[in-house]
Simulated scan of single mutants.
Amino acid sequence: MANDALKTKIQSMTKLAAQRVAESPYWFDINHKRRYVRVNGKSYRAVSLDPANPCGSLIRDGKKVSGNKTLKLALLDAADPQCENHVPKNKKPEHRIQAVLIWTALTDPQGLPRAIGIADRFDAIWFVADEVKMDKIRADLIMLGESQGRYVPIFIELKYKRETQVGEQVKNASEMARTIEAEFCQFLSAATKKPAEAIEMTKPLLIAIWGKSDRERPEAQAMRDRYGLLTIHHEELNL
């Protein structure tokens, strides 16, 4: 994705995120169904955070509920009692972790740092977006860490199994964001209502959440050193 195309996409997502925050303080836990409204490139989409359908589609009349140009329609989809959970075929374990991380960030941002073992770094972690596609890169989770009134972007990659390429993936996502630093900073601000001038784009935290290994491999440590990557085992999460 060329720089201009990525800039245009993030600017579009910024407008959608700002409208979502400004017009509806209840865009998650809709009708107590653990659903939220995802911001895509040019649209909103109602998505499930239910453990039975983590980060999955909703089904109505046998068809997947698609995206909407307006927030109002997406909220109606999320609230619709006729919409059911789609039973995912792949059932990736990392989707369950992704859904719980999003849910915790939305409902208890001050508790999330403690839940993932980094309370020494942050006072709170705020949800920004998930499944953000930037060219050939897809960022699993983008959040904003808060410490004493200052903020840093957090890029999180989720893997059920330990894969050493995860460091490159999450690093590439952060570097793509840096190519449009001003626009991406505005996106982070719009999605969280935090002041853009307090966001330090030059100090992102890169996290990989993956399975625990019986023994530490040298390449895993080399990856952490190379990319400045923080790795957290699934078993270490307190969610």
Results as ranks from 00 to 15, higher is better:
2 A>I: 04
3 N>K: 06
6 L>C: 06
9 K>R: 12
9 K>I: 07
12 S>F: 07
13 M>T: 02
13 M>C: 14
13 M>Y: 08
19 Q>F: 05
19 Q>Y: 08
21 V>P: 00
22 A>L: 11
23 E>C: 05
24 S>I: 01
24 S>C: 15
27 W>Y: 15
29 D>K: 02
30 I>W: 04
32 H>D: 07
33 K>H: 04
33 K>S: 07
35 R>M: 02
36 Y>K: 01
36 Y>E: 00
39 V>C: 12
40 N>A: 08
42 K>E: 09
42 K>W: 05
43 S>Y: 08
44 Y>F: 14
48 S>Y: 04
48 S>N: 07
49 L>P: 10
54 P>I: 04
58 L>T: 11
59 I>R: 13
60 R>P: 01
61 D>Q: 10
61 D>F: 04
62 G>K: 06
63 K>T: 12
65 V>K: 04
65 V>G: 06
67 G>A: 12
70 T>D: 01
71 L>A: 04
71 L>T: 09
72 K>A: 14
75 L>K: 01
76 L>W: 06
77 D>W: 03
80 D>C: 10
81 P>V: 09
81 P>Y: 06
82 Q>M: 10
87 V>H: 09
88 P>I: 03
89 K>F: 02
89 K>T: 10
93 P>R: 13
94 E>T: 04
95 H>I: 02
96 R>T: 05
98 Q>G: 06
98 Q>C: 05
99 A>H: 08
101 L>N: 03
103 W>D: 11
104 T>Y: 01
106 L>Y: 07
106 L>I: 13
108 D>E: 10
110 Q>L: 03
111 G>L: 05
114 R>I: 06
116 I>E: 03
117 G>H: 07
119 A>F: 03
119 A>L: 03
120 D>Q: 12
121 R>Y: 06
122 F>C: 04
132 V>T: 07
133 K>Q: 05
137 I>A: 06
138 R>E: 14
140 D>H: 09
140 D>F: 08
140 D>W: 07
143 M>S: 01
144 L>E: 03
146 E>A: 08
149 G>D: 06
149 G>R: 11
152 V>T: 11
156 I>T: 07
158 L>G: 08
159 K>C: 11
161 K>A: 14
161 K>N: 10
164 T>A: 09
168 E>S: 09
170 V>L: 13
172 N>L: 14
172 N>V: 10
173 A>S: 15
173 A>F: 13
176 M>V: 04
176 M>L: 15
178 R>E: 15
179 T>W: 03
189 S>N: 09
190 A>K: 02
191 A>C: 04
191 A>H: 01
192 T>I: 08
193 K>T: 12
194 K>V: 02
194 K>H: 10
195 P>Q: 09
196 A>T: 07
197 E>L: 08
198 A>T: 12
198 A>N: 11
198 A>I: 03
199 I>E: 01
202 T>L: 13
207 I>T: 12
209 I>Q: 09
210 W>Y: 13
212 K>R: 13
212 K>S: 13
213 S>E: 14
217 R>A: 03
217 R>E: 04
218 P>A: 13
219 E>S: 12
219 E>W: 08
225 D>P: 01
227 Y>N: 09
227 Y>C: 09
228 G>Q: 05
228 G>L: 05
229 L>H: 05
230 L>C: 02
235 E>F: 07
236 E>W: 05
237 L>I: 04
238 N>F: 02
239 L>Q: 00
